[in-house]
Simulated assay, not measured.
Amino acid sequence: MNDSTLSLFVRVTQKRQEAEGIVSYELSDPHGRPLPAFSAGAHIDVRVKEGVIRQYSLCGHPEERDRYFIAVLREPSSRGGSVAMHDEIEEGDLLQISAPKNHFPLEPAKRSVLFAGGIGVTPILCMAERLSHTQAQFEMHYCARSRERMAFVDRLAQSAYADRVHFYYDDAPEAGKLDVAAVAGEPNDETHIYVCGPSGYIDHVMSTCKAQGWPSSQLHTEYFSGVETTSEDDESFEVKIASSGATFSVPKDKSVYEVLSENGIDIMVSCEQGVCGTCLTRVLEGEPDHRDLYLDDDERAANDQFTPCCSRAKSKTLVLDL
């Protein structure tokens, strides 16, 4: 795993239980210097431990430069990141992180509708803070399985925009159920919609909005975990390195990234689930079998780039710009 982008060191100045299974971390420069600026929707890469780098959204106010806030859900099927954050990272520890990156930015719009599901509240919270600060028109709809699993409720309830935040709990349907179609309304040129949360939640919001005629250009998503990327029907294929002509076989049980790494060809990766786009690689020839959640429909249709951490090939060979 390549961690050359992790150029900053921060100290954990506070660790706090925010909800059942969710812990937040306040991160500050060890010498009290301002941290790099960030925009709403941004995330940082965090080196959790040797060989484990994960992405966490910044959920503090974008105007604050003296600290970053992140929140981490303890995943039952964790591959080592969330469990290590919960069990091994404590106040006073130093963490190595990247400068902020943003693949989920706010777009200029008269009105913004924010949908958050579970831990997906982290970038959405930052967006709400920014929109409130600029006195923009917006509303936020936050869903969770229960009140106990919902983070930052007190912070939202005490915010200057509390009247624009709506809560929904799966275990308390009498409190109201989210009606995505009613909330989104009819398509118009002045509104943008943002959604972050579990894949099923995102898919529900997106499919509902698209069914109402909302264009993809006004729908924005942020996934935190990938989808199943292997199948019993997978077949082996070859990848060819354009610069050297070297060709390698990719068996059905290995990713392109794994094969190239085994042969000394370094590709920067991070999430290894097709979510973050860190490993995005240009394709010069051949047709990728896209299995990521990073590229949009138009980018996939172009077939000139793919994510070697999880995507495969529909053609017998992919020629990579490496």
Rank of each mutant, 00 (worst) to 15 (best):
S4F: 12
I119M: 02
L131N: 10
I241P: 15
G197M: 00
S78E: 11
L318A: 13
A109R: 04
R65G: 05
Q218W: 03
S199D: 13
N2E: 13
H133P: 00
R145Q: 03
A116K: 01
V121Y: 01
V72E: 07
E107C: 10
P62F: 06
L94S: 14
H141P: 02
T247K: 15
Y25M: 11
E63W: 03
L219I: 13
I89C: 11
T221R: 15
K254R: 13
L106W: 03
T247R: 10
E75V: 07
Q135N: 14
S207A: 05
P108Y: 04
S112T: 08
F38N: 10
H141E: 03
C276P: 14
T122W: 01
C209R: 14
E235W: 02
Q96P: 11
M206Y: 03
Q212Y: 14
E148V: 01
T208R: 11
I44S: 10
Q218I: 11
D154H: 00
P30V: 09
A116V: 00
E148F: 01
V52K: 13
S4M: 12
H141Q: 05
S77V: 05
M206K: 10
S236I: 04
G226M: 09
S216F: 00
Q218Y: 00
P288Q: 00
S82I: 09
R145K: 07
L320Y: 10
P187N: 12
D253L: 00
N102P: 14
S7E: 15
V256D: 08
R300V: 11
L293W: 08
Q137R: 06
L260W: 06
F138E: 04
T307W: 02
A242C: 08
D163C: 06
R147D: 04
S24R: 14
L156V: 08
G264Q: 05
E272M: 15
D170R: 07
C279L: 10
A116G: 00
Y294M: 14
G245V: 06
H141A: 01
D321L: 13
L8G: 10
P198H: 01
V113I: 15
Q96N: 06
S7I: 15
S236K: 07
A182I: 00
D66A: 15
P173C: 09
R16M: 05
E238L: 09
L219Y: 07
F224G: 13
E139C: 04
E222V: 07
A182P: 04
L73G: 06
S39D: 05
S225F: 09
P34C: 03
F115K: 08
A172H: 11
P215F: 04
P215S: 12
F248V: 10
A71H: 08
K240M: 13
F224K: 12
A302K: 11
P123I: 07
R149C: 14
G264E: 04
